[in-house]
């Protein structure tokens, strides 16, 4: 990875619909993000465990598990990751559930690309702020006792 690539915020897009995954990946890559994709809950958890994503775009209806159900587990692994929940069937209850489970935003499909751009930008800023705070406070955001220099790997 080049130095320029290392500074690009990492975004994971999880959606079981290939068209949405590909369109979002293309769009966000065009905006300068380092984008990966996942198509179900299991691969999302394994990718989040392996890589320090700053932002996760998470569809709520995944084939193996509901996205909102896996959200707390994902944030246990990456507490500073900003999660934007995406849904085609919004309800007040689902927004409240997303809020209580630690999502930072909620977007309703079909969405305008400008809305998504704003949401991802805001989410990336939030992640950077949390990573910076953790660095300053020497808090180990991964939950073990290693110094933050070793544990926070946003870049």
């Amino acid at each position: 990875m080049s130095t320029a690539d290392a500074r690009r915020p990492r975004v994971l897009v999880t959606d079981d619909e290939p068209d949405i995954r590909n369109d979002l990946s293309d769009y966000l890559s065009h905006l300068g993000y380092d984008v990966s994709v996942a198509d179900d809950a299991g691969s999302t958890l394994s990718q989040v465990t392996e890589t320090a994503y700053g932002v996760l775009l998470l569809d709520d209806m995944l084939p193996d598990e509901n996205g909102l159900e896996i959200l707390p587990g994902l944030l246990d692994v990456r507490p500073s990751m900003s999660v934007i929940v995406m849904t085609g069937c919004p309800t007040v209850k689902s927004v409240i559930k997303a809020m209580r489970r630690g999502a930072c935003d909620f977007v309703v499909k079909p969405f305008e690309l400008d809305e998504l751009k704003t949401a991802v930008h805001r989410a990336a800023q939030r992640n950077q702020r949390l990573v910076d705070e953790a660095f300053r406070n020497r808090i180990d955001t991964t939950g073990d006792s290693k110094p933050v220099m070793n544990s926070v790997s946003y870049d």
């Binding site: 919004p90 927004v95 409240i96 809020m99 209580r100 935003d105 309703v108």
Partner: peptide, 20 residues
């Protein structure tokens, strides 16, 4: 008067909880 719009707005404004 709960709505998806106001709940999302609350989430974006870092509201801790939304109770109907």
């Amino acid at each position: 008067y709960p709505s998806v719009e106001s709940a999302v707005s609350a989430l974006r404004n870092k509201v801790a909880d939304y109770i109907t």
